[in-house]
Design a protein around this nucleic acid. Structure first.
Lengths: 207, 207
DNA sequence: AATATTTTCTAACTAACGTTCGATGGAAAT
DNA sequence: ATTTCCATCGAACGTTAGTTAGAAAATATT
């Protein structure tokens, strides 16, 4: 019904169910949070029986792990790749602009995984916050180097602390998952105004 | 301990326990999220038995309600009062600066209630998101009027959409509950840089 | 067509949840 | 000293959570 046109020759239907379980889990996590997401509801959304989940995953935690990791990875790779695709001599301002756009686009257009990895991360047991921690750290480093590099090159004011600038900026972007409404504005418009404010501030240009 | 100086004559020890239960709930909610916060753990932290909670609250939901509402109210009133305390002729820039400072101060210094009302709101059942919704709406209106008024007075660039500016700004501030570390910097320093960035942007002042 | 393998279902188990309620201790009032 | 009322305890209830295991169905292999 919703399989790709070329069904895998040898016995891998399992992948399809596994994907549906993850999709259902990501959607439920995003909407109802960790506390109200039960295996039975996930199974219902995925169209199978609760017990059947255990053929694909060893535990509920393993599902959470998979969803969270996939979310962070999607954002991380989107930003990293969009930066890597730029010509080597791209000015720092442009690189920041691209990174902001890629981050927001991945967050808001790329399904439930990314939103969930932002919204749900703070409320899951520490035990499997740690599983995706290396990726999260790598992502922070990516931004930190981008901003610190820009500052060293003179593209960002020298009197700002990039260790404050970075979380303030990323917080502003991350929080969009709580309020952004696709029916109101395109993502690009949010990104454009965010970059505009970041660069020039909100005060009118004066004498 | 935290009562008014005139202890109630007749039998009001109940208030103390009630406060301890709320404190415990707020702390647990902040650290472990809604899903992993159980009545038995709250009772344990509060130093009483699980069943005893029901002498003070009718249900778990009532506790959540109380914690959430108290959190939003603290932030709302802190910002509202700090604005009301300003002289009537205070320029818009200064008013925004004060509001940002009050919001951050309430969020980061005022205990677990405010942080929880930010972090946990998105993951509780809609049924009692609605209880604190009026207050939340009022707070949004407060900011919206502050910013729109400033823009009308020419203190904010006319080409910015305050309906995008507001959530971007508040998101940046709200996200601090995820990363701010009191042992690193005072809150005022974060507030100062946030306002600086908001007003002037991060680009160097050029010719 | 028969067999072997992969996937799902059904039904149950245990633990923990929110909640209830009668018994119990201690402080205030008589 | 006795009574009254407030606050807590302790043990239990019904429900639902995550999880398990053997039977059954679906699919692939020969």
């Amino acid at each position: 019904m919703n399989e790709p046109d070329v069904p895998p020759r040898r016995g891998r239907k399992s992948e399809i169910s596994r994907g549906q379980i993850l999709d259902a889990a990501a959607r439920m996590l995003r909407r109802q949070g960790y506390g109200n997401t039960t295996l039975r509801k996930i199974a219902e959304v995925a169209g199978i029986q609760a017990g059947s989940i255990y053929y694909h995953f060893a535990s509920k935690d393993e599902i959470m792990d998979a969803v969270l990791e996939r979310g962070v990875r999607a954002v991380y790779e989107a930003v990293r790749d969009s930066l890597a695709a730029l010509p080597p001599d791209t000015p720092d301002r442009r690189r920041i602009e691209v990174a902001v756009g890629a981050h927001l686009e991945a967050l808001l257009s790329h399904g439930d995984y990314t939103s969930t990895s932002i919204r749900t991360y703070g409320e899951v047991p520490m035990a499997f916050q740690q599983k995706s921690q290396p990726l999260r750290d790598a992502y922070v480093v990516l931004w930190q180097e981008l901003l610190a590099g820009a500052q060293a090159a003179g593209a960002i004011r020298a009197d700002l602390d990039t260790h404050v600038l970075r979380p303030l900026l990323l917080g502003s972007l991350n929080w969009t998952v709580e309020w952004y409404d696709p029916s109101q504005r395109p993502v690009a418009e949010i990104a454009a105004q965010a970059v505009d404010m970041l660069f020039h501030g909100v005060l009118p240009t004066e004498a």
